[in-house]
């Protein structure tokens, strides 16, 4: 129906090129040695030092206590991403279930109390959040890293929308069959929400993995460093070195971006669907 113009492709191609070029530069440069980068600039072609650099970044002990490795940071990022996504799904499904399927006193007040959290992002209460965590002795713990991030009602909001679209007949039928609230939730609603849960899991995993500010505040002990926290750490030793470890910084950046990028590409369809149309 409409003609394909080479001009459209050109703009698209150039746009994509510009957006992808930095990623390609980072990946390729991470396979060259620091000296090569220092003298020759960034590379668009693969080098020969890749295996050595990644082996060093993943397994060599560095940092102040000498215990932190790329592998341990990778693990912590994974714990944060998965822990956050699972926690979010469990908490918000339960809360949304109570709000949608029950008639109880103070339901409206509770609803407002939970959804008011959507008004203010974490970034506006950095200092007091830190103080609360310190009072609760949760600094440098996985609980402190994950749980406070769950205090936002986004997930609850999506599951509430979803539950409202579930036909009422299901509940009526379940009640006739004698199912109680817990049985109805576990045997009917949870299986019914599988697609929704998967989409939210992907989105929240990427969100959790990519957290930067909170891990910076919460962790000073290197055992709890995530890859994002590691980036901050590598920059702190950066200043003043003769030839900075460009290659290792690039390798760290590649490690930090590969998992979320892979997840998003593999589950692309589900990710875009979840991102752009969730009230179906």
């Amino acid at each position: 129906m409409w003609k394909i113009k080479p001009f459209d492709h050109l703009i698209l191609f150039l746009g994509t090129l510009f957006l992808l070029a930095p990623v390609v530069l980072a990946v390729m440069s991470s396979t060259h040695s620091a000296v090569e980068i220092h003298t020759g600039g960034l590379f668009l072609t693969p080098g020969t030092e890749g295996a050595a650099t990644y082996a060093k970044v993943l397994t060599a002990r560095g940092g102040f206590t000498g215990d932190v490795t790329g592998l341990s940071m990778l693990m912590n990022s994974l714990i944060l991403g998965v822990g956050f996504a699972v926690g979010k799904i469990v908490l918000s499904m339960m809360a949304a279930y109570a709000l949608v399927y029950f008639r109880f006193r103070f339901a409206t007040a509770i609803f407002w109390m939970i959804f008011a959290t959507l008004l203010l992002p974490l970034e506006v209460r950095i200092m007091p959040s830190y103080q609360v965590m310190s009072d609760l002795h949760l600094l440098n713990t996985y609980t402190g890293l994950i749980v406070p991030l769950l205090a936002s009602a986004t997930g609850t909001f999506y599951f509430r929308q979803f539950f409202k679209s579930v036909p009422d007949e299901l509940l009526e039928a379940a009640r006739i069959d004698g199912a109680g609230p817990v049985k109805f939730f576990l045997d009917i609603l949870v299986p019914l929400s599988r697609t929704m849960m998967a989409a939210i899991f992907i989105i929240m995993f990427v969100y959790g993995w990519n957290q930067y500010l909170w891990p910076i505040l919460m962790t000073t002990d290197e055992h709890f460093f995530t890859l994002m926290r590691g980036i901050k750490a590598i920059l702190q030793v950066w200043v003043g070195s003769q030839i900075p470890d460009y290659n290792e910084a690039f390798a760290l950046a590649v490690l930090a971006m590969v998992p979320p990028v892979l997840v998003v590409i593999v589950f692309q369809r589900m990710f875009i669907k979840g991102l752009t149309e969730s009230d179906k």
């Binding site: 930067y212 994002m228 971006m257 979320p260 990028v261 997840v263 875009i272």
Partner: peptide
């Protein structure tokens, strides 16, 4: 493009 979206701001 979506792969660029998945990259964290500090990275």
């Amino acid at each position: 493009l979506i792969s660029v979206y998945a990259i964290a701001p500090p990275v």
